[in-house]
């Protein structure tokens, strides 16, 4: 497999703040690569460096074999970059926006219709509507069409799904997966951990460090402990009670359950159950479960602290 993006020891500081701490990363051609991490973890700095817009303090980055500093002119023709919170021209219509972006890259919507058809056809019925009057999901589709219209070889999408409702988000990931057919390398960042599962490979990033790079399945499989989902009738107190349990490794709320690990390798449900009953919980349900990316993220964060 060809390497599309090669990041070597990139460091970026803003005054005293170190946004990226000597990170290295390889992204393969044609894969959907997720950069998963909360706000302030360094995602945006990384994307701007990839998009040739920001110079790193040290380290090198090459995309498709071209250096982001030396060859930025050539690279800009091949990249489709959608910044975080990217807003289109609100006072222009859908059609005017897409036409503008097409001509920016020296092409036309008609010439590139095949690649954007899947997305653009959904918003085309509203082509005379101003971008400012579109719903969140539609705006996002228009934005994607705009950065896709010149058939870029690499798509850089910085938090495309932030603030978008779960349904539009699902749809968006569906679209990205279909784009793989065009052999476009897609680098996408998100603060929503559950979206990691949609990527071919992900990097978990926190405080300017990459904590882990792998396929989502491998990351999940490497969760170091046995994980139990605990649920009782009292949602509000279960967490504090579990934390007070003497063998608790970790206890974090996940949906309607608490994900619990025990510091011991030998663990019996009954012991914990007895403890919880003693604390006054009823309807106790303890079952082993598989970790999610979020469990892994938390675990990696804890290891660091």
């Amino acid at each position: 497999m060809q390497v599309a993006v090669k990041i070597e020891n990139i460091r970026k500081t803003y005054g005293d703040i170190v946004a990226l701490k000597d990170i290295s990363l390889r992204i393969n051609e044609g894969e959907i690569f997720g950069i998963i991490g909360p706000d302030g973890s360094g995602k945006t700095s990384l994307f701007r460096i990839l998009a040739t817009l920001l110079l790193a303090d040290s380290g090198t980055v090459s995309l498709l074999g071209l250096d982001v500093v030396k060859d930025y002119k050539a690279l800009r023709k091949m990249l489709g970059y959608m910044p975080g919170r990217f807003s289109l021209y609100q006072d222009l219509t859908v059609e005017e926006n897409i036409n503008l972006f097409a001509s920016l890259f020296g092409t036309t919507v008609a010439a590139q219709y095949d690649i954007i058809k899947d997305i653009y056809s959904q918003i085309e019925p509203f082509k005379d509507r101003r971008a400012g009057k579109l719903s969140g999901g539609m705006k996002q589709k228009l934005a994607l069409s705009c950065v896709l219209v010149h058939k870029p070889r690499i798509l850089l999408l910085d938090e495309p799904t932030t603030g978008v409702d779960p349904i539009s988000r699902k749809e968006f990931w569906g679209i990205l997966k279909r784009l793989k057919a065009w052999n476009i390398t897609i680098v996408v960042s998100t603060p929503y951990m559950d979206e990691a599962m949609q990527c071919d490979r992900v990097a978990l990033i926190q405080d300017g460090n990459i904590m882990s790079v792998d396929t989502p399945d491998n990351i999940v499989n490497e969760f170091p402990a046995r994980l139990y989902a605990v649920k009782t009738s009292n949602k509000h107190t279960i967490l504090t009670d579990l934390r007070d349990f003497e063998y608790t490794g970790s206890a974090f709320a996940f949906g309607d359950h608490i994900h619990f690990t025990d510091v011991r390798t030998e663990f019996t449900n009954d012991e914990l159950k007895a403890y919880l009953e003693e604390k006054g919980h009823t309807d106790i349900d303890i079952s082993e479960t598989t970790a999610t990316i979020e469990d892994c993220f938390i675990e990696l964060m804890r290891k660091k602290i």
């Binding site: 998009a51 817009l53 970059y81 919170r85 990217f86 807003s87 021209y89 609100q90 920016l104 890259f105």
Partner: peptide
């Protein structure tokens, strides 16, 4: 608007 970023990143 953030469009300058996109313009800069374009050819």
């Amino acid at each position: 608007l953030g469009t300058m970023e996109v313009l800069l990143a374009s050819p």
